[in-house]
């Protein structure tokens, strides 16, 4: 395991020096990114509906969003069989990508479900 992580970190160094991704197939990378983006969007919509139905308000909702995103990240890492560097070039991809993009969808569906269930 140590040998593997060593070599992958040296690969990463060379990739940073080149300002490119040499050891990854670009198309596969893009496909992986797309999968992450889809799953994040999907989870943010579902999470928004759940938060609205449960009636979270204020900070609780945003904490719930963070929770959902954390669960998504863990799920993606589990899907990658816990060897993230085999599929992605950095941890940021799996943890942070699409984080802000899902927020608007989350807020929309949160508001929608909350209004329908609790306000009227």
């Amino acid at each position: 395991m140590a040998g593997h992580s060593d070599s992958s970190s040296s690969e990463k160094k060379s990739s940073e020096a080149m300002n490119d991704v040499p050891t990854f197939s670009t198309e596969n990378m893009q496909n992986n990114m797309k999968v992450i983006y889809y799953s994040r969007t999907f989870m943010s919509i579902i999470g928004g509906v759940i938060a609205g139905i449960l009636g979270f308000t204020g900070f609780m909702g945003f904490i719930f969003y963070f929770l959902v995103m954390a669960i998504t990240s863990i799920g993606l890492i589990a899907k990658a069989k816990f060897s993230v560097h085999l599929y992605f070039d950095s941890w940021n991809r799996i943890i942070l990508d699409g984080f802000m993009g899902g927020l608007m969808s989350f807020v929309l569906f949160w508001t929608f479900a909350y209004d329908i269930v609790h306000i009227f």
């Binding site: 969007t41 943010s44 919509i45 608007m104 969808s105 929309l108």
Partner: peptide
């Protein structure tokens, strides 16, 4: 809110 929030849904 719809205008910005539905973008994710459309991409799905």
């Amino acid at each position: 809110l719809n205008l910005f929030g539905l973008r994710g849904l459309f991409s799905l």
